[in-house]
């Protein structure tokens, strides 16, 4: 009996794992690309180990004072400009979205707005390739789920690290 339960659970666990991979891959392949400008973080070299802390310009430009002090999380409305760079429009308050507008989830910490993910992982030693990153490259699916797929330089070109074999 215990063995049967174990097998059933294992199937469930593996199915869930692979479904979540599938879900992410769908966004990655079919999602709409949108760039989010990275805010210069002081000091600039916040590269620690094998990941990089990210701050977005949109975090700083968003007028956090407009929010009620008890509001800890919510959505902001963004719109992409001609270069596919996302710009803050307003905080979302249940209203319908106009064409081209997207929702971005945020949470508020110490009266500052933050969006996730606020870190970017890469292989140890690759930090130099990403040090001049200017944009975070996101993929958005129709329902607004998004995925950070890479970083881009000031020409909005995704940084691809050539690995020497």
């Amino acid at each position: 009996m215990r063995t049967k339960i174990m097998i059933a659970l294992s199937v469930l666990v593996l199915a869930t794992m692979n479904y979540s991979i599938y879900e992410k891959e769908q966004i990655k392949q079919h999602g709409e690309t949108l760039l989010l400008e990275l805010a210069p973080v002081d000091p600039r070299s916040l590269i620690q180990g094998d990941y990089m802390r990210l701050r977005y310009a949109i975090d700083r430009n968003a007028p956090a004072k407009e929010l009620a002090s008890h509001q800890k999380r919510g959505y902001m409305v963004i719109r992409s400009d001609e270069n596919k760079v996302a710009k803050f429009v307003r905080f979302h308050q249940e209203e319908d979205l106009a064409a081209g507008e997207k929702l971005l989830h945020f949470h508020k910490k110490y009266s500052r707005v933050q969006i996730v993910p606020d870190s970017f992982f890469f292989q140890e030693g690759h930090a130099k390739h990403y040090s001049n990153a200017k944009y975070g490259v996101f993929k958005f699916d129709a329902s607004g789920k998004h995925l950070l797929v890479g970083l881009a330089d000031e020409n909005r070109k995704t940084i691809i690290v050539e690995t020497e074999i």
């Binding site: 666990v13 794992m17 992410k24 990941y51 996730v116 993910p117 606020d118 992982f121």
Partner: peptide, 18 residues
């Protein structure tokens, strides 16, 4: 290994912060 999977998944799809 499930934990290892979750960590690698988090890195590939950049879910780091959460």
């Amino acid at each position: 290994l499930v934990g290892v999977f979750m960590a690698v998944f988090g890195q590939i799809y950049q879910t780091g912060a959460d």
